[in-house]
Amino acid sequence: MSMARFVELENVGVTFGQGPEQTEALQPTSLTVERGDFLAFVGPSGCGKSTILKLVSELLRPTTGNIFFGGRELGAKPVRVGMAFQSASLLPWMSVRDNVMLPLKIVPPFKSGFRSKKNGEYRDRADALLAQVGLEDFADKSPWQLSGGMMQRANLCRALIHDPDILLLDEPFGALDQFTREELWQTLQDLWIDRKSTVMLVTHDLREAAYLANRICVMSPRPGRIIDDRQVSFARPRPIDLTFDPDFVTLVQDLRGLIVHAPNVKKVDAT
């Protein structure tokens, strides 16, 4: 498959509701994501960042426009998606390992072999992934025995265990404290460098976007549209000290300026 045009949004717009209560969540937007890219969406809350993730994961159908995946229209061929949200939502009745293995129980082709491989191949696969995020000693623990940061690590493992074509992260570290968050940034970067997954990350933390992403899309307030789209070219692996680098600080300030002064071009007509 060619590098370019892994995910392609073509004039994709989303409108919720009907008649006078209609609200436009996303203005017709076109966007191309390359395979293996790490793309971050930043913008004010309610700007439709999460809407884009929901479109790509087929949780939401676009009102207008088309979405292509690997050159084909979305839905034509099943796209394997890994998703993680701010709330880790691990299942409390299962061990951490079983939680991580959950997608293997549901996603083909893994699901057909689940019964026979859950104590062998799949188990090793989950353990390897858990070890990669530093949770090797917690595989048999229950989720409630984990700290918030550990739960998010397990959540990342669950989103990656089935080798997704694309990883969709919706403010995954939003509820964590600063130190834990920065640790998780490094973990996520390591995972990305290791797997070369295509990642779409939604965040309201501009430093997070600047540290993690190869490319940042800035969105306007609702109805959302992309008002800035830029590459971030700091060398990998990025050390956490990078966040004090003048270039990094300038980038974050630029992004902030864009969001604060974003012109709300098209007001929603309430009547």
């Binding site: 994961s57 998606v81 998703m83 549901i106 669950r158 989103a159 089935h162």
Partner: peptide, 8 residues
């Protein structure tokens, strides 16, 4: 959403 994105 996680389950639905896995096409459960």
């Amino acid at each position: 959403d996680v389950m639905r994105s896995l096409k459960a």
